[in-house]
Design a protein around this nucleic acid. Structure first.
Length: 461
RNA sequence: GGCCGGGUGGCAGAGUGGUCAUGCAGCGGCCUGCAAAGCCGCGUACGUCGGUUCGAUUCCGGUCCCGGCCUCCA
C-alpha cells in the first residue's frame, strides 16, 4: 500500500519511498533532559512511533533514532543548583523519559544518540563548515553564516529580513549578521566543556542533531520529525548546517511536524507552567487512555488536553475491551491477527489516526454482532490486528477492567465471597439483600454485572 | 507587524461538491427481579458575508474570531 505523507518542506502530500530501498531512516527530535517531560512532549514519540511501526510493516527495515540532548544551559543550571555534575541530572531524566514513553506504548527507537557522545562529530562538522566558508570563529565561538546559504528560511518560509524585523534575534558583537547562530560556544571553568580548536567549549543547540544524523545515517535521511515549534529555528538551522556541510546535498527528504498540545486553548509549555507531567498522569490514569487521547486528533492539528478528554478515552477503551471480553472464548494465535485494508489505508493517508480509530470502533461493533464461530474468529483477528498496529488493546481484558485492583479495599477473595452471597440471595429471591451487597461493593469501587453465564465484576478506580 | 495553521452537532474529532463519519454524553425501546453490559432506534453540525454551481460545510473572495512560530520550547 502507498504511504502518503504531508511533507512540510514542499507543503504537499507526497508518496513516501525511502531513498535506499533497503532501509528507511527516521530521526525524531527528543527531549533536553533536565526535568520530567510533560504530555505535550509525548506527542511526537507516540505519533511518530506509530509511523515507525507502519514503515516497518510497509518497507521492512527501519532505523528510527530519537535523540537525547544531554548538554544544555538548562541542564547546567539544574546541576549547579543541585551541586552535582550534569550527568547526574541527565542520567536521571533520560531514564525517566524512556520509562514514561514506554508506559505510553511509544514504540522504542532503534537508536538513542546522546549529544555528549558525539562531541568529536560536532567539532568535525564545525571545522568543515569553517573550511567551506559557511561558518566562522570569533571570540571562542563558532557561528554559522546565514548569508552563505541561499536557501536559509526555506523550511520555515521566512526571510532573514523578516527575522531581523522581528528584532528578537540575539545581537552580539562577534556576529557578522544578527541572524547568525552559534555552533560552538566557550565554557567557563565551572561549566561542562570539551577541548576544541577554539578553546574549551560546548556545542550550540542545533548542531548536535546534524552531527548525530550524519554519524548514524550519512548525509541524507528520509524523515525528520518533531514538534512544529521546532520548525524555526531548530530545524531550519539543522537543515542549513547539514546541507552546507554536505556540499548542498539534501539533508532530510521529508519533514513532519506535529501540532501542539493545548491547555484551555494555549500551548502547553514549561515556560508557561501549564503542564501535566507524563510521570504524574500515568500514576493517575490508565496509560493506554492517555495514548488513545494523543491519537484521537490528527498529529498535525493542535489538541486540547483536558480531564474530559482522558475520561472520554477511558470510556471508549472500556467499550473496546468489553468487546474483547465478549470474544474471550475465541482462541486466536498471535500470528493469526490481520490488519484490515481500510484500517491500514487510514494510516497510510498521512497517518490519519482519528479515521483509524473510527474504523476500529466499527470493527468492534462488527465483532460484537458476529454470530458464527468463523466470523467471530475473523472479527477478533481484525480487531486485534488493527489495534496492534497503533499500540492499543494489548492487555488482557481482565487486566484493563481490574486495573485498580491494587487500590481496592477488598481482596478478590472477599469480593468473590460477597458475589457468591449475592447469588444465593438472588436465588432465594431476597433481592433487598442482593442489592445491599451490590451497593456495598459499589462503594469500594467494585461493579457487578450479571451475564447469561453468571455474574462478573470489575474494579473501577 | 511578518509567516503559518484553524473555526464542524452538548463535547471530542475525521471528512466530502449532491445518501452515512466515528467516539463520548443524552433520549426512547428490547433484554434484566432491578441494574450494568449489549442490541435496535433518535438529533434539521459545518464562524460570518458574498461569488461560482442545477446544488457548497466542501471551490473562490471578503470579513470576524482563535492558536502557533518569529526567544528556550515537542
Amino acid at each position: 500500500m502507498q504511504l502518503k505523507l504531508y511533507n512540510n518542506l514542499t507543503r504537499q502530500i507526497e508518496v513516501f519511498q525511502p531513498a535506499d530501498p533497503g532501509r528507511v531512516t527516521m530521526y525524531v527530535c527528543g527531549p533536553t533532559v533536565y526535568n520530567y517531560v510533560h504530555i505535550g512532549n509525548a506527542r511526537p514519540p507516540v505519533v511518530f512511533g506509530v509511523l515507525s511501526r507502519l514503515l516497518r510493516r510497509l518497507f521492512g527495515r527501519v532505523i528510527y533514532a530519537r535523540n537525547i540532548t544531554d548538554v544544555d544551559d538548562k541542564i547546567n543550571a539544574a546541576a549547579i543548583e543541585q551541586g552535582v555534575p550534569i550527568h547526574v541530572i541527565t542520567d536521571k531524566f533520560s531514564a525517566a523519559y524512556a520509562s514514561d514513553m514506554a508506559a505510553l506504548g511509544a514504540n522504542p527507537p532503534d537508536l538513542v544518540p546522546h549529544a555528549t557522545h558525539h562531541i568529536a562529530d560536532i567539532v568535525s562538522m564545525c571545522e568543515r563548515l569553517i573550511a567551506s566558508g559557511h561558518a566562522y570563529a570569533a571570540e571562542g565561538h563558532v557561528l554559522f553564516a546565514v548569508d552563505s546559504y541561499a536557501d536559509y528560511g526555506k523550511l520555515s518560509r521566512r526571510s532573514t529580513d523578516e527575522m531581523i524585523a522581528g528584532a528578537r534575534v540575539e545581537v552580539a558583537p562577534y556576529k557578522r549578521q544578527p541572524g547568525d547562530f552559534v555552533l560552538w560556544k566557550p565554557s567557563t571553568p565551572e561549566l561542562p566543556g570539551w577541548d576544541s580548536p577554539w578553546g574549551r567549549g560546548r556545542p550550540g543547540w542545533h548542531i548536535e542533531c546534524s552531527a548525530m544524523c550524519e554519524a548514524h545515517f550519512g548525509e541524507t535521511i528520509d524523515i525528520h520529525a518533531g514538534g512544529v515549534d521546532l520548525q524555526f529555528p531548530h530545524h531550519e538551522n539543522e537543515m542549513a548546517q547539514s546541507t552546507c556541510a554536505h556540499g548542498g546535498r539534501i539533508f532530510a527528504r521529508f519533514w513532519l511536524h506535529n501540532g501542539m498540545l493545548n491547555m484551555d486553548g494555549r500551548k502547553m509549555s514549561k515556560s508557561l507552567g501549564n503542564v501535566f507531567r507524563v510521570h504524574d498522569l500515568i500514576a493517575e490514569h490508565p496509560p493506554e487512555a492517555l495514548r488513545y487521547a494523543l491519537l484521537s486528533a490528527h498529529y498535525s492539528q493542535p489538541l486540547d488536553w483536558s480531564d474530559g478528554l482522558i475520561e472520554q478515552s477511558v470510556r471508549t477503551l472500556d467499550r473496546l475491551y468489553g468487546t474483547l471480553r465478549e470474544l474471550a472464548d475465541v482462541e486466536l494465535d498471535a500470528s493469526a491477527v490481520v490488519v484490515p485494508e481500510a484500517f491500514e489505508a487510514a494510516l497510510c493517508d498521512d497517518l490519519n489516526t482519528p479515521q483509524a480509530l473510527a474504523i476500529l470502533a466499527q470493527l468492534a461493533a462488527d465483532a460484537r454482532r458476529a454470530e458464527s464461530a468463523d466470523e467471530r474468529r475473523m472479527r477478533k483477528a481484525e480487531l486485534l490486528g488493527a489495534a496492534g498496529l497503533i499500540g492499543l488493546l494489548q492487555l488482557p481484558p481482565e487486566a484493563w477492567f481490574n486495573r485498580a485492583a491494587s487500590r481496592c479495599a477488598l481482596s478478590s477473595e472477599q469480593i468473590e465471597a460477597l458475589v457468591a452471597e449475592r447469588q444465593s440471595a438472588k436465588r432465594a429471591r431476597a433481592f433487598d439483600r442482593a442489592d445491599a451487597i451490590r451497593k456495598e461493593l459499589a462503594d469500594v469501587g467494585v461493579e457487578i454485572e450479571d451475564t447469561p453465564s453468571g455474574p462478573r465484576w470489575n474494579i473501577r478506580s
